[in-house]
């Protein structure tokens, strides 16, 4: 990568927004490069569907390109992108389609297989809650959480947002954030305690 490309990658957010408003394609490429992974993870955390997440985030960028003129400079670009991604992920038409897809993709023979037992004698307690086996188990359980609970859990886990920030971002009360997080954790903890 040459120096000017590096310079372009580091361009300040305000300048990036300015250039996006002018419709510059390379600015758009920087935007995509910078936020793609972050937004994909949010979408995946909510939908738990790879193809769907990819489509959602593509739509987010298309929508940003279309609506960047309405973006107020004092707002945070990251927050704006996050909000659009959450909204797209929760869109009812998408959910409808997803339900069709899920209904046809047999969920793994969950309950029998999904018993995670920590073999305390064999495993070091520090590594008991790590590894692919544990990951698979956790994902199976996360899929069972109500979507509104999962959204809060996603913003907490992937974005590291405070309770106040999550509340603001979703337009709900801080108490609701706390109780949804509590629901998620209680349910996940119960499932790993055999």
């Amino acid at each position: 990568m040459n120096n000017s490309a590096v310079h372009r990658d580091n361009i300040e957010e305000a300048e990036l927004v300015e250039r996006l408003k002018r419709g510059q394609e390379w600015a758009f490429a920087i935007l995509v490069k910078k936020y793609r992974m972050q937004l994909l993870k949010i979408a995946y955390g909510i939908t738990l569907d790879r193809e769907e997440s990819c489509e959602i985030v593509q739509d987010v960028f298309v929508s940003v390109h279309k609506n960047i003129k309405n973006f107020r400079q004092e707002a945070s670009l990251k927050g704006w992108l996050r909000k659009i991604t959450v909204n797209h992920s929760l869109n009812w038409k998408r959910k409808f389609k997803r339900r069709f897809r899920w209904s046809h993709t047999p969920l793994e023979q969950e309950d029998e297989k999904m018993q995670y037992t920590v073999q305390k004698e064999k495993k070091n307690p520090e590594t008991a809650y790590q590894g692919k086996e544990f990951e698979k188990f956790v994902m199976g359980r996360i899929k069972k959480l109500p979507e509104k609970v999962r959204v809060v859990f996603v913003l907490n886990t992937f974005e590291g947002l405070s309770y106040d920030e999550i509340a603001q971002s979703l337009g709900i009360k801080k108490g609701t954030v706390k109780s949804r997080l509590h629901t998620a954790r209680k349910s996940l903890l119960e499932s790993i305690r055999s």
Binding site: E25, F28, A29, V32, K33, R36, M37, L40, K41, Y44, G45, R50, S53, C54, V57, Q58, F61, V62, A128, Y129, Q130, F134, E135, K136, F137, V138, M139, I142, F153, T157, F158, R185, L188, L189, I192
Partner: peptide, 29 residues
């Protein structure tokens, strides 16, 4: 709790890493 957090993050990261960044960029552009 930390294990659950890390597992969720890592699963999402693994799954999303498999999406080709160049193909994604061309398509969205």
């Amino acid at each position: 709790l930390q294990g659950i957090k890390e597992a969720f993050k890592s699963a999402a990261e693994d799954e999303m890493k498999s999406i080709d960044s160049q193909v994604f960029l061309s398509s969205v552009t």
